[in-house]
């Protein structure tokens, strides 16, 4: 996963403050924390010379884009697809007790929060995640079952 320094390297580094932050580094930090989005830096979006970097930065934030509502991030480089989190995730068990709930392939993929595809866990249907919505709770099923800390909430 990227860190703020790497994000900074891809920013314009002009400290123009158009993003409302005091410096590009400060912007990189809030970007990393997902408080702001890449498009909140106007020069990055508008100036053609930053086009390539803009795309790169956008891509970094893309895989977890739909996860931002619950803040779930999968560190794809760490995950090795063991499926522990998939099988332990309470809504997964409730929605597919004989499939993923019993350790097997999903039989109800449209209702599952976590599945393994191409050897890496994919988060989707985040409306089902217990950390989402009015009655949200601080579920940590997918965190404590992961041997490599590949799932994180920000």
């Amino acid at each position: 996963m990227t860190n703020a320094m790497e994000l900074y390297q891809m920013l314009p580094k002009t400290n123009c403050k158009k993003c409302g932050k005091a410096s590009c580094m400060a912007f990189a930090v809030v970007l990393m924390a997902r408080e702001l989005k890449p498009e909140d830096c106007p020069p990055l979006v508008e100036e053609p010379k930053y086009k390539e970097n803009y795309e790169k930065i956008s891509n970094i934030f893309k895989p977890s884009e739909n996860a931002t509502e619950t803040g779930l991030i999968v560190h794809e480089d760490l995950c090795f697809g063991c499926g522990n989190c998939v099988v332990a995730c309470p809504p997964n068990v409730a929605n597919d007790p004989h499939g993923v709930g019993s350790g097997n392939a999903p039989t109800n993929p449209n209702k599952l929060v976590l599945t393994v595809q191409d050897g890496i866990v994919k988060a989707q249907n985040l409306g089902e995640c217990r950390r989402f919505g009015k009655n949200k709770i601080l579920c940590n099923g997918c965190i404590v079952t992961c041997p490599v800390e590949a799932i994180e909430f920000v």
Partner: peptide
Amino acid sequence: DDIEVGSEKNKINKVFTACRIGMA
């Protein structure tokens, strides 16, 4: 025994449920 795959032109390009070792 529960692995699903997608393939195109006789090459597997998508693997479901297998771990990373299995996928590779």
